[in-house]
Structures are given as C-alpha cells and as structure tokens.
Nucleic acid binder design. Structure first.
Lengths: 245, 245
DNA sequence: CGGATGCTTGATGTATCTCAAGACGTGTGG
DNA sequence: CCACACGTCTTGAGATACATCAAGCATCCG
C-alpha cells in the first residue's frame, strides 16, 4: 500500500474526500488502481497531443501538468492545470479525437488506466462514484471561473485568484500545509494561462510583491496575506465545491 | 407528437443525432420527455441564480439563453450560450449549490425535468446514452475553446470564431438552413461574452462589415464569406465533435 | 566553454477602455 | 395621443493599460 505522502492513489483519495466523506474501505479500493501502468514524462514534453485518439485515463501522481490549446500561428493558451490526484479527463476516451493537448510542466509521474478498470473500482462504491462525478463537474466549474477571470479580472486580480485557487487545490491533496509551498510555474506559464504577455506578468508580480501580497522565487510561493489576496481577486470558493475542506 | 420544426424534443434529437446515428425509436423515446413541465421566461430575466440548489434539469426548447458569472462589483461574464436542444447542465443537480447563473436572452421556453426521468429515457438506449455523454463533453470543450479565444484571439478573431461556432450549432438543430439566420444577441451580449467593451464590439463589427465578412442588423446575421470567417478566426471544428454534421 | 531557460528592465507604440452624448425605435402610462 | 423611459446602436475625445521589441544578466548543464 502506498505511503500517506503524495504517492500512489493517496492524493486522489484526499481530493475525492473533499467532496464526499470517504472511509478506509474507499481508500483501499482506490489502491487497486495502483496495479495500472506507471509512466513518467519530463518537463516541457507532451503527455498527449491534440488529434490523438485517447483510449486511457491518466491519473497524475506527482508533478504538475497542464491542458492547453494552440493556434496554427503558435499562440498558445493554457486552459487548466493538473495537480497530483487529478484525473486528466475521466471521460474523454469516449471521443474519437482529442481537441487539446496535455503537457508536463515539471517532471511528472502518472498512471495510465483502462476506462473499465476505473469503472470497476469506482462504480460499486456510491460515495466514490459520487465524488468522482463531483471531480468532473468541478473541473468544468474551474474552466468557467477562468473564463470569468480572463474576461473580466485585471491582471493583478487574475494572478491573485489563480494563486488562491491553486493554494486551495494543493492543500486539498496535502501539498500545501502552510502558506508557503512548492510552485513550479514559470512566468511564462503564468502568462500563457492568463492571456497576458510575459513582460506584463513580470511587472504584475513585482507590483504584488511590493504590495506585500506574495513572495515568489526559486519555485516557491509564499502567500503573505491570504485574506487580502482573496479580497483583491474577489475569490468565492463555491466553484470548487469542497464541501469538507 | 411534436412537429418537426423547432418544437418539443426535436432540436435535442437533431443535436444528439450529430454525435451518434440515432433512429426513429430513439426519436420517439425522447418525446417522452415532453410530458415534463414546460415553462417560459422573458428576455432579460434569470432562469436560475448562483447559490440556488438545483434539483431539475432544463431542456431549452425555443429562444436563446446564456450561462454567466458575475463579480460583486457588477462585472459580468457570459461563459456560454444555450440554444434550443441544449440541456442546461445535465449533471449539476448533483451539486448542492449552483456556481453560476442562467439567464434568458430572448423569450425562452424550456422543460424542467426530474433527473431520474432523463435517466429512464436515455440510459436504456445505448446510442442515446453515448450521444448525451458527447453533449456533456462538448459543452466542456466549447468552454475550453472560449478560453483560447478570450486569452489569445483578437477581438475580430473572437467575434468571427463565435459567429462560426453559433452557425454550426444552429445548423445542427435546424435553426440555420442558409447563411442568413436569426441572431438575437445584442452588442452588449457580445461584449459580455468576449470580454471586450460594448464600444469596442461596435467598432469591431463595423470593421467586419467593411471587410465584407458579415452583415448584422435587425437581429439577423448574414455570413457573407464563411470560408474567410473560418480562416480569420482559425476555426477548427474538431472541438464540436459533430461526427456527422 | 556555449547553449538553454528563466527573470528583469527600458523605450515605444497602439489597442482598448472610459466617459459622454446623441439618435432611433418601442412600449407604456397619463 | 402624446410624453417619456428604456434599450440599443453609434460616434468622438482623451487617457492608459498592455503588447512588442530588444537587450542584459543569472543559473544550470552538457
């Protein structure tokens, strides 16, 4: 069985446990998925490419990844981040063609699992089933919140909002215990996720540091004033649907 | 049984039929949903508000609606449009709290259906089941494409892309037979969906008219040059997953 | 040592916002 | 039936937030 810290299916268990109260039997049921094939992938390489025919479900175990879309002329938009414990699209294997790509932002490790295996594990247990449905719905809700951010929030607000969101999600899977935590995104990633140029991200970050909101260096983020960060970004946690944070 | 034009469950049938080949028996199965309660709602009023506890699934029958999110200070972002035949969130009734609102853009008519009724109709028929899963996945894919649009495309490109998307979707449900069709969105709606000010939308539209791309007046959109519109916006229809357009 | 990768800064241009006003059509109540 | 409010589209003027281009520096690594 996996150790309790950031290995195997433990992050997934912790995440699902935020949606529905799970018990030890649920936890053990999930470990069955650890029989699947564990793969790994280097930073800056793709886990899946647009146009492929997906046939497996991927469960991120360690490292950060992202979903992105690109245009023929090279512009690229990150449309979501994957953290340990996240399924990369539980149901997309149904589609015949992937409409986006998945890229590794750091070195990542993940399971590739056959769809029926997931069903075998999850479907018989009502709470797991419900929690995994939540997971799916929340992924979609996060996309909507990003649309609100990119469409309406200013760059400072956008970054503040993103930092708080990632803080909540990392905490859920046990990767942020305090207000300082590993944060491997480069300014380039932040730019691609927020629809702003790198130069502007750089200046926006400086402003936020000057304001005493955050510190960010050496791949570590320190949230100095969480409440102000939430106020600035008008953060409303309801979209994450963590009933039991 | 409903007439074939834009009434009852016919738009839904047509939409699902774009994902999987359906037969007459599937069509008739869907009409069972017409036993549900038909409601209507005036333009500019809300069908559902953020914070509510959703317990029904809504199927849009006629008119246009949108999903939107707003910030405490009044800013608002439209994150999706609903056309006849669309389910407003097949699965959200699972969540205890709605994280967004649904607003009517025109006078709309819709069914309110109990979740179990939908399951009763859809689950026993494999093609219906698969098609409705597609519907869900495509809604999510559209959100991703919008993120790409708002984050990376210029206002002209964004509008062009939106016009093509809506043309495809309207055609799928039989509401656009030629390149001229009813288009009830105001410039304000376009602004709120694209994260641009109304003034700028106005000027962007003028530019597009000048360029001979479209005509738009009196709630009618005329696509003058579809191919150029697609080229300008770098439109790739793969995200709609209309296998059988 | 040379080449990636990432962060930072300055200078310049422009796309887009904001504010403000007017015109038009439509429905409504006095 | 008129007066008025309201929603929508349009235009102008001015301010500014942001992109772009370009360069320099640090770190890491083969």
């Amino acid at each position: 069985m996996a150790s309790l810290t950031a290995a195997g299916t433990e992050p997934l268990f912790r995440l699902l446990n935020c949606f529905m109260p799970l018990d030890q039997a649920d936890r053990e049921a999930l470990t069955v998925l650890e029989a699947g094939q564990m793969l790994s992938c280097d930073a800056r390489s793709d886990i899946a490419r647009e146009g492929e025919n997906p046939s497996v479900v991927r469960l991120l175990v360690s490292g950060w990844a992202c979903r992105y879309k690109d245009l023929p002329d090279g512009r690229r938009q990150i449309v979501g981040f994957f953290l340990p414990g996240d399924f990369c699209d539980q149901n997309v294997y149904i589609l015949s063609q992937l409409d986006h790509s998945i890229g590794a932002l750091t070195h990542v490790r993940y399971y590739e699992i056959a769809p029926h295996q997931i069903k075998d594990v999850i479907d018989p247990r009502p709470n797991l089933l419900r929690a995994s449905l939540y997971h799916e719905l929340v992924s979609s809700a996060i996309q909507r919140e990003w649309l609100l951010s990119i469409g309406q929030r200013s760059p400072v607000e956008r970054l503040a909002h993103l930092f708080v969101e990632l803080y909540y999600r990392l905490r859920a899977v046990g990767l942020a215990t305090g207000l300082t935590f590993d944060f491997p995104l480069t300014q380039n990633h932040l730019a691609e996720a927020n629809g702003v140029s790198v130069v502007h991200i750089n200046r926006t970050l400086q402003e936020m540091r000057r304001e005493g909101l955050i510190e960010l260096s050496d791949r570590q983020l320190r949230i100095i004033d969480l409440e102000r960060l939430k106020r600035v970004s008008m953060f409303n946690p309801n979209y994450l649907h963590f009933n039991r944070a």
